[in-house]
Simulated scan of single mutants.
Amino acid sequence: MEYKDYYKILSLERNADQAEIKRAYRKLARKYHPDVSSEKDAEERFKEVNEAYEVLKDPEKRAAYDQLGGGFQSGQDFQPPPNWDQGFEFHGGGYTEADSEAFSDFFESLFGRGGFSQNYGRRQRRQYSAQGENTYARIAIDLEDSYRGGARQITLKHSVLGPDGRPQMQERTLNVKIPKGITEGQQIRLAGQGEPGIGGGKPGDLYLEISFNPHSLYRTEAKTVYLELPLAPWEIALGAKVQVPTPDGPVKLTIPANSDNGKRLRLKGRGIPAKQPGDMYVVLQTVTPPANTDAQRDAYRQLSEAFEFNARKWMGG
Rank of each mutant, 00 (worst) to 15 (best):
F88L: 11
F88K: 08
E89M: 10
G93E: 07
G93Q: 04
G93T: 09
G94Y: 08
Y95R: 02
Y95W: 12
T96C: 03
A98R: 13
A98F: 14
S100C: 01
F103L: 15
F103N: 04
F103V: 12
F106P: 04
F106L: 13
F107K: 00
F107I: 03
S109H: 00
S109E: 03
S109G: 01
L110F: 02
L110P: 00
L110K: 00
G112I: 00
G112M: 08
R113H: 15
G114P: 00
G115F: 01
Q118W: 04
N119Q: 12
Y120D: 11
Y120I: 12
R122H: 10
R123D: 15
R123I: 04
R123W: 06
Q124G: 10
R125F: 09
Y128Q: 15
Q131P: 09
Q131T: 10
E133R: 05
N134R: 14
N134P: 05
N134A: 13
T135A: 02
A137H: 12
R138N: 14
I141Y: 08
I141K: 00
I141Q: 10
I141V: 07
D142E: 02
L143E: 12
E144H: 07
D145N: 10
S146T: 12
Y147F: 15
R148A: 12
R148M: 02
G149W: 06
G149S: 14
A151M: 11
R152G: 12
R152D: 11
Q153L: 13
T155N: 02
H158M: 11
H158K: 09
S159D: 07
S159C: 01
L161Y: 02
L161E: 01
P163F: 05
D164K: 07
G165F: 06
G165A: 03
G165H: 05
R166Q: 08
R166H: 13
P167W: 01
Q168E: 12
Q168D: 04
Q168S: 09
M169L: 14
T173C: 14
T173G: 09
N175P: 14
N175A: 13
K177C: 00
P179Q: 06
G181A: 02
I182M: 10
T183D: 03
T183A: 11
T183Q: 13
T183N: 04
I188S: 03
I188C: 06
R189Q: 13
R189T: 13
L190D: 06
A191T: 15
A191I: 08
A191L: 02
A191C: 06
G192S: 05
Q193Y: 11
Q193A: 08
G194A: 13
E195A: 07
E195P: 00
G197A: 09
G197P: 11
G197K: 09
G197W: 06
I198L: 14
G199T: 10
G201E: 11
P203Q: 10
G204Y: 04
L206H: 10
Y207W: 10
L208K: 14
E209C: 06
I210A: 05
S211E: 15
F212K: 00
F212H: 05
H215C: 02
